[in-house]
Design a protein around this nucleic acid. Structure first.
Lengths: 240, 240
DNA sequence: GTCACAGTTCGGTGACCGCCGAACCGTCCG
DNA sequence: CGGACGGTTCGGCGGTCACCGAACTGTGAC
């Protein structure tokens, strides 16, 4: 037995080990990048994090072994993605907990514009976040499709709305239909869970919004502005 | 500037730093112990974790500086507790994420009975968890007081029930009235949030259950069995 | 076959950090 | 006042770990 055995709480080693996986700046940067829900290659992540390929390879090994990432080998590429929605939620929760960095001034114009694009609209693994996510969530709430006053759940009218909008909801799995996800830019809850994922997928599939850049940021298209206005009464000004 | 500056994600350092606070076995043991919602002295925690007082003092300094703990000095004592419900939720979420340790055999009879007592009923910061928490949540759901099929929220009938049971709900703050907390023993959601906290407080105040041992575990009293049966139709057998 | 390229393995290095005991500072009590 | 006790500070030690470059494996392209 190499580890010491002092504390009597059987959960402590596991908890520390899990946190330890996230407690490295390079690995944290990878997890945040992977929050876009897509699969990245090891090389892309290495360049993104600014470390040698060999270094990143070791990091990926740990993250996969720890169950945070799933991998898929294709030819000479190693694709990794977040293991599941629960991992994504965990990372997002941790990121939201980070002390609100007030008035941090961006170091460059590029970073500044990228930051504000992220604040306007982005995906959070599989659902919409940023001001866009907030606007949609608020609109659903105001129209009585979503209840936030007694918890966080769709109403009967909400179920009907999703159905008539042609957005199918898979109610089979164990994943909650609606769940609140705390936004780290707006610090307000927005719609996640099965409904949030379906809505985001629909928005990307039908061209309501498109991904910009190589990361999480998304932009609402003119088509999307019209659809959001028609279906939910969202003013275009609320998205800027 | 001493830290390196490679990744372009401004969140990565903060995320890694936060996870780093939890990524130590001793600090993890402290956080888990503090999940009972009470204030512990530094000495108690040092004995609990099995390290020297000087070591633990440094750990507490980091946890307080990182905003995970709040402290209160009284005479020669230093009391610490979890900073707020959000920190508690974070720790519980992380603990629940830890790979389900199947068939881990307890090392001693004491640990074994302590474990099963925790599985029967315990508090999770400020609300009920374990089989007790699950039983209450299920009963609320079956009786139409709580909806879990479209999210997680109290119903109108649920609000009335809390009112008629004499359990006041503070709907002022920003904290959600009802929220799902995933149980690490049962791996099922149970009631947290304002309603969960109020119910737990009421249960302890009126003697429905009492704390056993020095930690999170609670036991249902005969009075409590009657109350739970009368108010929610919970069979005593569901609590064993 | 040959070259380019993605990824991995490995040895070595340096920094970080958790740990302890010893000395020290306050508080409480007799 | 003096002694017990809770907590903190400090120096030093040892282990862990992220990092890199170099050598290597395997895939894909020409």
């Amino acid at each position: 037995m190499t580890t010491r055995d002092r504390t009597h709480d059987p959960q402590a080693p596991g908890l520390a080990a899990l946190a330890g996986l996230i407690a490295d700046e390079t690995r944290a940067a990878c997890l945040l990048a992977l929050l876009d829900g897509r699969a990245w290659t090891a090389g892309e992540l290495a360049r993104h994090a600014g470390v040698a390929a060999s270094t990143l390879s070791e990091h990926l090994g740990k993250l996969v072994a720890g169950g945070l990432l799933s991998e898929e080998r294709q030819g000479r590429h190693r694709y990794v993605r977040l293991a599941d929605a629960r991992v994504a939620q965990l990372v997002e929760d941790l990121a939201a907990q980070v002390s609100p960095r007030v008035s941090r001034r961006p170091r460059s114009l590029r970073e500044s514009s990228a930051g504000s694009a992220m604040a306007r609209g982005r995906t959070c693994y599989d659902h919409l976040a940023g001001r866009l996510g907030i606007a949609v969530t608020d609109a659903l709430t105001v129209r009585g499709l979503l209840r936030q006053d007694t918890g966080f759940a769709l109403t009967e009218a909400g179920l009907t709305w999703f159905d008539s909008a042609g957005i199918g909801l898979d109610r089979k799995g164990r994943r909650p239909l609606a769940r609140a996800c705390l936004d780290w830019t707006e610090r307000r809850p927005h719609l996640a869970g099965v409904a949030g994922a379906a809505l985001c997928r629909h928005a990307l599939d039908t061209g309501w919004c498109v991904r910009i850049g190589s990361e999480r940021a998304v932009k609402v298209t003119p088509t999307g502005e019209r659809a959001l206005s028609d279906l939910l009464g969202i003013e275009a000004s609320a998205l800027r």
